[in-house]
Structure formats: C-alpha cells, structure tokens
Nucleic acid binder design. Structure first.
Lengths: 338, 338
DNA sequence: ACGTGGTGTTGAAGCGCTTCGACTCCCTCT
DNA sequence: AGAGGGAGTCGAAGCGCTTCAACACCACGT
C-alpha cells in the first residue's frame, strides 16, 4: 500500500504539501503541484478512506435508508436509489445502503459511528419512529416523503395532494361524475404512509368541490384482488366511468380485466395512473398519467444533503415537486358527453 | 462525541481493556466486562468507524456493484441487493452501493482506498472489463453471474444452462415440437451477458437432442415490440405451440397478446417463464416457471465473501444453483396430443 | 519453596491522514 | 528603506482505535 508519506518523499516535499495538493485547501505553486501529481500517478497512490475519515471527521459517505419490502413500488425505489447514488458520486460521495428492516437501530449505528456524513431516508411514515433519532443526530438528514410534522426537517416529495386534485380535475373536465380510486395495498394505509393518504385527500377534496362522486378501494397488485376490487366497485357504483390507479402493480391487471369485461378504454371508462413515465408508456394502453419523478427526487435529496453539509441550506425546508399530468390514450370524454 | 478513552476512564480500566471487551479478542473477567459494558451504555458510546478502519485496516463494509440500467430485471436486482444488505448486516457488515455506471473506476476507487473489505459484483459480462482489476485487488471478490473465464474467481449464479435444458424438457415432455424463445432485449445479448447466452445454449442443445425445433427472438418489454416479435414468430413457425420467456417485462404483454389473438393458454400454447416466483404467481395466468432465486444468490454471495475474508474459502469456487421448475397453469399437453 | 503456565490487564506504538501555526520569501506600498 | 502582506511550504500534533509485548497475579505440581 502506497501512503501519502511515500508520495511526499518521492516528490521531495512534505506530507502536508501532498495533502494540500489533494484537497486544494491551500495554494500550491504550479511546479510543486505537478511534481506531486506526477508522483501520485507513478506510485499509484490512493488515499486511505479510514485515515481520511479519522483525521477529517468526514467519511464522504451518504447513508440511504430504503424500505425492505420488495413487493412495493420497486421500480420507483430503485430509480430513486440509483439517482441518489449517481448524484452522490458527482459530489464526491459514496452511498451506504441501509435497509428499513433495522429501523431506528440503523440510524443509531450510522449516526453514532460517524460512518456517514448525512442520511437520506425514504418511505417515511406519517409518525415515523426514526424521526426523533434523526432530529437528535449530528448528521443532517433529508427525507424523501413527508411525515405529519415537518418542523425542523428537510423533505423532498411529489406534491401528492396536488396530484390527487389534478387527477380529479382531469376526469371531471372530461365529464366523469363517478370516479373510483384503485389505491395501494391495504398495508400501505395501515402504515400511514404519507403519500397514499395525501393523494386520497387531494382527490376527495377536489371531487367534493366539483360535485364528483368518489369511491376509494385499496388493492393488492394481483389479478385476483384486482378482480375482486373491480367487482365490488361496479356493484356499488355501476355508473363508474373514471379510474385513478395508484398501485403500479395493479395497472396491468386493471387494464386486462376491463378489457375482458368488455369495457373499452377510453370509450367506456377512462383510466388515470400515478406512476413512473416508463410504466405509463409501456402498458397495453398508453396511459394518461401523473409521473412520479423518482430521479428528480433522488437528485434533489442528495443536493439538499450536500448543501446542508456545506452549511448553505436552511434546517427546515419542504420541497414539493409540482405534479404534471400527461394526457395519453387511456382517458377521454365520459360516455354520453357531447 | 464519547470516545473509548472516556469509557475507559469511567470504568476505571485502560483503553485496551475496553477495546478487548468490544472485540472479544482476549478474555476479560466477568466483573470487568460488566463494568465496561455498563459504562458504554451509560455514556452512550459508539466506536468511531474511521478510527476503527484505520487501526484495524478493516472497514466492515462490503461493496455491491449493481448495474445502472433501471429498465432491466429490476425486481431481481432489487431482491438481490436487499438480500445482500440483510445478510451482510447479520455478519456485521454494511453495504456500499456502487452503480455500474462508473465501471472499472469504481473498482479502483474502492480497492485503492480500502473503503470496503470485499466486493460483490452483479451483472457480470462474459468478458467483463472489471475482471482484471478485481483479480489484482487486495480485497476478495464474489461475482453474481458467470464470466467466460472463471479461473481464480468466486462466482454464484443460477445454472442457466440447466435452466434452459429444463424448460426444453418440460415442453418436449408435453409433446411440443416447435418452441419459441422470447428472450431479453437485444442490448442484453450485445453486451454478452452470461445468463442470457447460457440459457439459450441450454435450450438449443437440449432441443437439438430431443429433436424439437427452436426459434429464438430477443424482445423488449413493451407491447409494441412483443406484438412485432409474436407476429414474426408465428409467420416463420406457424406450428409453434410452446413459449419460453426470459424477459420479465415481456410476460404480461405476451399473455395479453396471446389472449387477444384467441390463442388460449395452456390449451393452444404453453408458456414457461424464467422469472422470480412472485412474478410467476401474480401474472394473469399462474405461470409454469423456473424461479430465479434472487434472495438465495444474494445470501450466498455475502456468505462466500465473508468466508473469504475469514480465510476459510478457496480462491476459486463456482456455485451454480440447481434450477427448479414449478408446473402451474400456463403449460399443458401440446394440441393434438393424446 | 520454587518454577510453570494460565489468565487478566496495561502501556505504548502506531494506523495514514488533516490541519494549525509558524516560517520564509518576495513583492508592493508608503 | 522599512513595514506590511500574500503565497508557498513545512513540522508537529493529533484524530480514536487496535494490537503487541510485557507484566502481575494466582493456583498448581513437584
């Protein structure tokens, strides 16, 4: 292993000079810098991460807590994770992957050991048990998702309330008077995951304002449960002509079952999905959808974390990304509308 | 920040004693140990990761390289990643997430800096450009996937050759004489990803042995491309009655399109999928499938890495998991078979 | 009584890096 | 000409931990 001291000797300078060449924290004359850089290359020197972390009390690592659940909005999670990793690298950070499984213990471990300089937490619940720990931590934190109380927190999320309202608007504009919401799996609501409840709230409020009837049914992503859910919806509200789907996994089953039942999309029923662009464009019908900007969320979260580390970002800051609805082939005028 | 020295003072022992209590590398009398443990709890002490890494030259971190591509076998990747993270934790390791984007540079950075103790590399290509670097690294490596040349490497993978053969066997047993393989996207073959080519090889060889005709067509995961692929298949081989699908994303489109064309599964055509269990059981038809044991692969990879770190594992070791085919509702006797 | 071999504990020497203060030049301003 | 100051470099003091060699102690066998 080549050490900084060896580089210094090879270049004929002191260790501190090499360090300053590396960090740029002091000015170094061009000839010296070149000599040092040449020695670094020649010896194949790489700074030792542990020593660096110890001396500077900075690890250049960002911790990312992702939920363990493999059965839920996986593509979104993965997309966020990759955006986080990529953005982090562009700022000189590496990413430590923590699974939600450990919960608060993981937070304690990371903050206590100084393993990471900052944390990014996904899949935040309204009353998340990790919040008190994160508040108390030395390291800055950024949440992807919104807890009930955001005092003193930095959060990034899609504005799901506005998303719900947007969906309601779109369907109401097209003349739909009875809308069904195919939601996430019941477990998601039981955990009080913010985004699911917020979407619903946005939908309900706007539907109320517009005089549109709204029926919400949670739904697993399988064909069986979608089948059951669909029957119950049409039993209860035979006049339903508009659907809003929030569960990615339920999209294919929904389209498939509607087709089998002889209900044409968008002639008989309109469908609006809340999902990543890719899912919307690859479904059997090109879906009118509100995109979940996974990449953007990951990127923003890292940038906020880095800004907080540099001391140039307020403690409390809630970034809500404005939803955008793209009209595609799955929504149209309600039947009987001129 | 509480340091080990403070704990030592508080407990009335030397720093080294505290260290030995923590690591268990020397015997400590029960009373002393209890005193130290009590002090640790009382002061809320957490060892500093950087200092530890520096002094012991062990970071207790495993690096995991995942491909960047978000559009490909995402659920499998995610499942492996989570299994890796979980298993690693149970061995006292954390996981550093590296995206494939950086390629060899990431390998150099991690091995050079001693950031991680070992590496787990996913999505290995047959002639992977990272291999030479991994060979030269101080840190042990485990590959998930098989490169062309495995000399001196530790690899874990599903036996895809056997998987292909198994699928061919199953369909042949049911009397199918013309089989179509709906493969991964063309890009996957262009990159010479081992598993795709191996599956095909297994299929071809066994089909040849059994006198079954085999047609292979790469396919993207969208409806459009599936539609095109399907037409070409039936144009070229109208007698096709068996399908093997390897691209997860293509499964739903395939089933959907077959249904629309009036071809019943499994009465008219049989479908065998190579995918995770969950995908097979949640599709519109419960699919006969060979499971991709993502969790198992992740777990094994970590265990091998840990074993190598402990010096109790051979340098070269290829672990091929035996495929298992589960018969479900998508495969049956070929039409016209008694 | 004495050596012997465990067992439990300690002091001190680093691990490889960052960073602070100090020093030396040399240029500029008055 | 002398003060003042910026630029470039260095030495040394740690950062918090691990680990090695060494020591003290006790119980044992002879």
């Amino acid at each position: 292993m080549v050490t900084l001291a060896e580089v210094a000797r090879h270049a004929g300078v002191s260790a501190s000079t090499v360090s300053y060449v590396l960090s740029g924290k002091r000015s170094i004359s061009a000839p010296t810098r070149e000599r040092v850089e040449h020695s670094i290359k020649e010896l194949g020197y790489h700074p030792n991460a542990g020593a660096r972390a110890l001396a500077s009390s900075r690890s250049n690592i960002l911790a990312l807590m992702v939920p363990l659940r493999t059965d839920m909005y996986v593509p979104v999670m993965m997309e966020i994770a990759i955006a986080v990793a990529t953005t982090a690298r562009s700022h000189g950070y590496d990413v430590l992957l923590l699974t939600g499984e450990e919960g608060p213990a993981a937070v304690r471990r990371v903050t206590g050991s100084g393993l990471a300089d900052a944390m990014i937490v996904m899949d935040v619940e309204l009353e998340d048990e990790r919040l008190p720990l994160l508040h108390a931590a030395r390291q800055p934190t950024v949440l992807i998702g919104l807890p009930a109380d955001t005092v003193g927190l930095t959060c990034v999320d899609l504005d799901f309330t506005a998303t719900g309202a947007l969906c309601a608007d779109h369907l109401a504009d097209l003349g739909h008077r009875e809308i069904a919401v195919v939601g996430e799996a019941p477990a998601v609501y039981e955990r009080h995951t913010g985004f699911a409840e917020r979407t619903l709230e946005g939908l309900r409020r706007r539907a109320g304002e517009l005089g549109v009837r709204l029926l919400h049914r949670p739904c697993e992503g399988s064909y069986e449960s979608m089948d059951g859910t669909l029957s119950r919806i049409f039993d209860e509200r035979p006049g339903t002509t508009g659907f809003v789907v929030q569960n990615e996994a339920a999209i294919d089953p929904l389209l498939s079952l509607l087709r089998r039942q002889g209900r044409a999309v968008p002639e008989d029923v309109s469908v609006v999905a809340i999902c990543p662009e890719q899912v919307a464009t690859q479904a059997s019908v090109r879906l009118t959808s509100v995109a979940i900007p996974a990449q953007e969320m990951g990127r923003r979260a890292v940038e906020l974390a880095v800004a907080k580390l540099a001391g140039r970002a307020p403690e409390e800051q809630v970034t809500l990304l404005a939803p955008e609805l793209t009209v595609r082939a799955s929504s149209g005028p309600a039947p009987g509308t001129s």
